[in-house]
Computed example of a mutant assay.
Amino acid sequence: MSRLIGCMAALACLTLVPGCDDDDDDDGGNDDTVECPTGGTQLTEQNFGRAFLDTYCTRCHSSTRTGAARNGAPVGFDWDLIASVRAHAEEMNEEAGANADGSVNTEMPLNDPRPSDAERRQLSEWLVCGAP
């Protein structure tokens, strides 16, 4: 009986009380977030980002495209403009980047050509470093 009560209390904690689980990070971080690496060669707009965006993204996400030519890309999500990339980096990563566990997000782009998993991981790294 006490085992059942313990299980019920644990279930209530996980479902009803925010922050009550045992998996909380001490720093409050999100386990799904890729972190900006230190050291090594940093990815930049010049050595990675621009080519990636031009190859996979700007056929829809471009300030020069309007209406149906955007293929559903929201206005203002223009990856030909680095300021827009930086402002929407989190959304970009959720659609086309990667997670800390190494899995990738494959919602975008909607059609070929599509980036490899390795390229998606590089995209995440570039975005979390601020898209320099």
Rank of each mutant, 00 (worst) to 15 (best):
Q42R: 14
H88K: 13
V85G: 07
D25G: 06
S84N: 15
L123C: 08
A51Q: 13
G28W: 02
S63L: 00
Y56W: 03
D32E: 12
P74E: 09
A73I: 04
D80N: 15
P18K: 04
R70E: 00
G19W: 05
N71R: 03
C60L: 02
D112Q: 13
C7T: 10
A10D: 05
G49S: 07
R3Y: 04
R3V: 11
C60R: 00
N71D: 03
P74G: 08
G40T: 10
G39L: 08
L14W: 12
G28K: 03
T66L: 05
M1S: 09
N30D: 15
C36H: 07
D80H: 06
V34W: 03
D21Q: 09
T44Q: 11
S2Y: 04
D54R: 06
D54K: 05
V34D: 10
T38N: 05
G29P: 00
C7A: 13
V104T: 15
A118C: 09
V75Q: 06
R121E: 15
D23M: 12
A98Q: 06
G102D: 12
A131R: 10
T64D: 01
G6L: 12
G40M: 09
M8L: 14
G28S: 04
C60I: 02
D31Y: 08
R50N: 09
A98W: 06
T55L: 03
A10N: 03
A83P: 03
D117W: 09
R59W: 04
L127E: 11
V75T: 07
A87Y: 05
L81M: 06
F48L: 11
G6K: 10
R114P: 01
A12Q: 02
G49P: 00
A73N: 00
G130E: 11
T15N: 03
R121P: 08
G102Q: 13
M1G: 09
C13L: 15
A89C: 08
Q46W: 01
Q42M: 13
